[in-house]
Structures are given as C-alpha cells and as structure tokens.
C-alpha cells in the first residue's frame, strides 16, 4: 500500500446548537483529530455523546461553530455551500443507518448517482466501475432492480457501492449496520475492510457494537463531546 497521507484534520472543532437562544448547547467541545488514508477507525461512545454531530462536521454536511477542518490539506471554514458541496461530492463517501437509496432509480443508477450529479451523464468507464462495485457487493444480478425489490441488507450494500463509486478519500458511515442482523452486519463490515484495502481510502465508522468496533484498527471514543485519549 502507498505511503499513508493525511486525509482529514480537525483543530479545536466546536459545535453548538440553538445559538443565541435559551436552550443553546455545545455538543462538541474543541476536537482535535487526524485521519490518514491508512486509517480504518471506529467512532464509539454513548448515545448523545455527539458522534453523529462529529461525523456530519467531518462530512461537510454541517458547519462547525468554531475551529478548522482540513480536508486533503484544504481549510474549509471559509468555503461557501457551493464549494463545500463540490468537495463533498468529489472526496467523501457516505453510508447512513438507513440506506437512503433514491427509489425512482435502479440499483445500478443509484450507484452511479454521485457520478451523475457531479459530472452529468456517466461515461462507459463510470458504468463499468459501478457494475464492478455492484459485483463486489454481490449484487450484479440486481443491477436493474428497484430499491423496493431488495432486502435491507442488499439495499445497504448498494449504498456502500454508491459511496465508493467516486473513489472517495474518506468514507464516513453512521451506524451502517444498526439496522441489520448480526450476520449481515459482519458481512457489511467485511466489505468496508475490503474496500479500505483495495482503494486505500480512509474509513470512519460509528458503531454501537463493541465486537464490530474491535475489528477496526483504531478506536476513537467520544464522551460528552470530547475525545477520550
């Protein structure tokens, strides 16, 4: 594997909700964190500790109240929504607890969706790549199926293929197996591991399952909005 490089770095990241109101609350209290391309990390912590909030900041889905987030060396705090969206589409991949496929499109089209919204009509190469990813997650026969025709585990595997089609530098997954049975959850984790090794992309997974967290190379634990050393 290539020399590990920095993918993402947080410096003093803070996030408050309901700013200026009576119920203002700071959820993240100045987080410093670095992820390298070699990282296959689990983010763990009790419910309400701020894991999803942190993941959303890293995923540029939300803006921090204070601090800086570097993605591939670029500072992002001064970027407008357009630039953040572009960066997100280009370098990040997301898998959520619920698969969130676009129901009007087939499995293959869903996998291609990030390519289509970022670059327009997909070329042959992108389609081949999407088919290969579907094959990798064991769904080559379901390329033309609509999401409603797939089981929960199959849908989540399509979502994983979708998160990888743009060859992101960082894959973020918020409780990707929270909705799956133990066996399927282990399979999905194995998939993440395989893609991490195959493409060299950093992976950050939120999970409540200690056994799954143990299979990761690194565990980051978040308690009450602070990272435990």
């Amino acid at each position: 594997m290539a020399e590990p490089r920095e993918v993402m770095r947080l410096e003093g990241l803070r996030k408050s909700y309901n700013i200026g109101q009576a119920n203002e609350v700071e959820v993240l209290h100045g987080i410093d964190l670095r992820l390298d391309s070699s990282d296959f990390a689990a983010l763990v912590g009790p419910s309400g500790s701020g894991k999803s909030t942190l993941l959303n900041q890293i995923g540029l889905l939300d803006t921090p109240t204070d601090g800086e987030l570097y993605l591939l060396g670029q500072a992002t705090s001064d970027m407008d929504d357009e630039a953040r969206t572009a960066l997100r589409g280009q370098h990040l991949g997301f898998v959520f607890q619920f698969h969130h496929l676009i129901s009007a499109f087939s499995a293959l089209e869903n996998v291609l969706m990030p390519v289509m919204v970022n670059q327009g009509r997909p070329d042959r190469e992108a389609i081949d790549r999407a088919r290969a990813l579907l094959a990798d997650v064991g769904l080559e026969k379901f390329a033309d199926s609509k999401p409603t025709e797939l089981s929960g585990g199959q849908q989540q595997r399509v979502a994983i293929a979708r998160a990888l089609v743009t060859r992101p530098a960082l894959l973020l997954a918020d409780e990707p197996t929270g909705n799956l049975d133990t066996k399927t959850a282990a399979d999905v984790f194995a998939l993440f591991r395989r893609f991490h090794q195959a493409y060299g992309c950093a992976v950050l997974l939120v999970t409540h399952d200690p056994r799954l967290a143990d299979t990761c190379d690194r565990t980051i634990s978040l308690i009450d909005g602070c990272i435990e050393p």
Binding site: L61, T85, A86, F94, F98, M113, P114, V117, N118
Partner: peptide, 14 residues
C-alpha cells in the same frame, strides 16, 4: 425530503 437530503450529501448543488 430524505431523498433530497441524500442527493445533497452526495454532491448535488443547491
């Protein structure tokens, strides 16, 4: 709403 959210997450501009 959810589909719009996911489309925005994967890079769809406003």
């Amino acid at each position: 709403t959810r589909e719009i959210g996911i489309l925005r997450a994967i890079g769809t501009r406003r």
